[in-house]
Design a protein around this nucleic acid. Structure first.
Lengths: 204, 204
DNA sequence: GTCTATAGAGGGATAGAC
DNA sequence: GTCTATCCCTCTATAGAC
């Protein structure tokens, strides 16, 4: 207890760097980030970045893998659970995703903007060829709506969760939404999205 | 006629640079793009970029404004047309957006990844405070579904159009979708999305 | 208008003192 | 382990010949 409390206040140097790197990389992207920015954000010296992590790119890879894990990691076990219905899966994915994104609002920006430059990192997480097509979730959707490509619904589900966080900065800047209203809407979406998906699937 | 045909084959130097800049900036983002890349892509010399456009950033601003125009421009007149119903607007937006995106599949990546660094460019396009909240489209949605924040539906509409193009590279790399299937699905979406939105609005 | 050559700044990485 | 000082490469921008 005492140890943990202390660790939170007085992080190890290595952890300070990682924390600063998370922040700066996420805000500015890989190319626009200078190692000096990270050092400054961490309140430390530039040389320490190379002492703890060999290079800017190594440090980035570490952060990236972590974010990918956050972004895609939890979904895989859910998707292949044979004991839950489609609707239960949808509810689970929605609520977990919305919570994750509310805590990390710029996760989508980061992952999506860097993904095209990093064709390999996230393959390690997802491994194996077209496991997704063979997943239980996709199979269950296919049964529910046999006439349609099931990925329509997967894309809609993820899009309705993730896209608001992408649009949010734009909408706020346009004065269309304030922070509080946005937060309230995201809460509502936890129940709205499963209902929308349900009616989409039943329409067929 | 003769002149135009020639112009299309043998572009002016200025146009060659812009064309190359579009390609490279879109693929790599601003920070990761080197002016040398653009010069090479254009088959020209580096010095010419600075001759025609004063600097890398000026050139970028030009391309960015152009892309913003593409991305947001056409929507504004549609949104404020008093002579069309919600459903007609949804159909119009969907079909135009899907066509635009099919021709420029990496438009979303570009706009969305650069938007956080360029808080001002697109404000010129959208100008004026919360014009969006006062738009006819939003008012019409509010009437149809009085209990809910109308931006839920706007976000869903745009998300269902745009998000597939964001996910596409990921899904292709995971072997879940091939190019042909994706193109087919995007065509289907032109009619599917309006139907989905309609049933969402009626559910309330 | 288009090129070559180069100035000049910025930023990643490291040597070496403490 | 942590710091300062600095190397050196890369990239933008410009000078100047043609």
């Amino acid at each position: 207890m005492k140890k943990k409390a202390k660790a939170e206040i007085d992080l190890s140097t290595e952890e300070k760097i990682k924390e600063a790197a998370r922040k700066v990389f996420t805000r500015k992207g890989y190319a626009a980030t200078r190692t000096r920015d990270i050092a400054e954000e961490a309140g430390l010296n530039l040389a320490l970045l190379n002492y703890y992590f060999r290079s800017k790119s190594k440090l980035f890879e570490m952060i990236m893998a972590e974010k990918m894990q956050q972004f895609f990691g939890f979904m895989l076990p859910v998707i292949n659970n044979a004991d839950t219905s489609v609707q239960e899966k949808v509810e689970l994915i929605t609520s977990k995703y919305m919570e994750l994104l509310m805590e990390n609002p710029d996760l989508p920006y980061f992952v999506l903007s860097e993904i095209r430059n990093t064709p390999d990192y996230f393959m390690k997480i997802t491994d194996s060829g077209n496991f997704l097509s063979k997943s239980i979730f996709i199979r269950q959707i296919r049964e529910k709506a046999p006439g349609r490509n099931p990925f329509h619904y997967l894309i809609n589900l993820l899009g309705m969760c993730v896209f608001p966080f992408i649009m949010n900065p734009v909408l706020q800047k346009m004065g269309a939404l304030d922070e509080k209203t946005f937060a309230k809407m995201m809460k509502e979406r936890k129940t709205l999205i499963p209902a929308w998906i349900k009616s989409m699937l039943e329409e067929d």
